[in-house]
């Protein structure tokens, strides 16, 4: 089955993204396809390039990146939610005259249309909200 996830909770302050990650791993372990994870609302903080959690806690941005590397899951970040919260890729940083970029690769900025598209394209779209 082809899955997509919608993640709307901030990492470390809410359980939502931690649960989403566990669900994501279960999906691929069972042999299903995890097409994409869409980060919306405070969920966009999962894509923070500069996140530096304590070593004895899960590193969510790294964990999502590993999922992408192993299973080619697209990590899609709502651009409107991200820019408001200071998460910019190199292109947006240049466009807004910012000194550095803060969006981790391979997360990519995209529009809400991608979320709607996932809902149409995938068998299941599962939401993780705080």
């Amino acid at each position: 089955m082809r899955y997509a996830l919608l993640v709307q909770g901030a990492p470390y302050s809410q359980q939502a993204s931690h649960s989403a990650l566990r669900f994501a791993r279960a999906v691929v372990t069972r042999g299903h396809t995890l097409d994409s994870v869409f980060f919306y609302h405070d969920g966009v903080y999962n894509a923070a390039r500069l996140a530096a959690p304590p070593q004895d806690e899960p590193h969510l941005p790294d964990a999502w990146s590993e999922l992408h590397e192993q299973y080619a899951t697209a990590l899609l970040v709502c651009i409107a939610s991200a820019l408001r919260r200071g998460l910019l890729d190199e292109r947006e940083a240049a466009r807004h005259g910012k000194m550095g970029h803060s969006l981790k690769s391979p997360f990519e900025l995209t529009g809400l249309g991608q979320l709607i598209d996932l809902g149409q394209r995938c068998d299941r779209l599962v939401t993780f909200s705080p």
Partner: peptide, 9 residues
């Protein structure tokens, strides 16, 4: 916003 985008699609 999600509703408007879906409608636009």
């Amino acid at each position: 916003d999600a509703a408007l985008v879906a409608a636009a699609f």
